[in-house]
Amino acid sequence: MIFFLMALLLHIDIVSTAIDSQYCSEKVTIVHIVVCLKQVPDTTEVKIDRKTNTLIREGVPSIANPFDLNAVEAALVLKEKYGATVTVISMGPPQAKEALRRAIAMGADQAILLSDRSFAGADTLATSYTLAQAILKLQDAGGVDLVLCGKQAIDGDTAQVGPGIATRLNLTQLTYVSKIESVDADGKHITVERKLENGVEIVRGNLPALLTVVKEIYKPRYASLPCLIESLAYEPVVWNAKQISADSSQIGLEGSPTWVETIFSPPLREGGVILNPGDENYDKEFSGLIDTVKKIVAEERSKLVCS
């Protein structure tokens, strides 16, 4: 009961902040930005046990997904420009609060953790449903103009949750954004640069919109020491499945159409010849190597001539 009341109070607080800023700031074009953030294992620290060919996860820290921090930074830049409120949301267990605090230390206004055992086992479809339900609740409370996500999470690398949220909430979908050029004065359009394989596309889209951002957009700022210390005491609001009116058939394992059938270690490439300048065979092996390269170089050159 107490928890419920607390949640209710905090909820009202969120609503009022969003509305306050609408009236406080002179020329408001963007009022409320929601950033989706995931806590992930730092996959760059993962090692493989070559004997058993399994992951060694011990000692691998949990971090805020790096691309999501680029999104937080983009939100903060817009906040500085337009006086918007920045809300950071994450789906995860209680320990994911740590990642949310990182965003608070950077300058986000509030953080919400979507935490419920029934969210476990979610694939991207169920995850986008869960996050969309929370954003819907924020929309009902006072509107959301912009949702920002990192382009993908480094543990799953799917890049599917952003488009999933946009599709569910009918937000204008703008992925791989490398620059936010401008927001129209009437707050109805946003112009962004999208980084594609062969160039940069400049797109103007209706608001509200969902952007997924690439790392080139902004480098995440370092939190100042006072902000960092203050953030340690910050308690994110926690919403469970019921509080976001989640349909139990669309969350967690049950809401996930994909099944992990097997997991295995990637087949290792066989190592080849090692050439050591000290060895007696070195010269012979080196010229063998050069011959191999020459053959391919010649083949590639002849291709160029033909085309």
Partner: peptide
């Protein structure tokens, strides 16, 4: 597909959809 920064491979099925 590779997952986890390429550290593991997973085989995924979509059974009922």
């Amino acid at each position: 597909r590779p997952a986890f920064g390429g550290n593991i491979m997973a085989t995924i099925l979509t059974k009922n959809h």
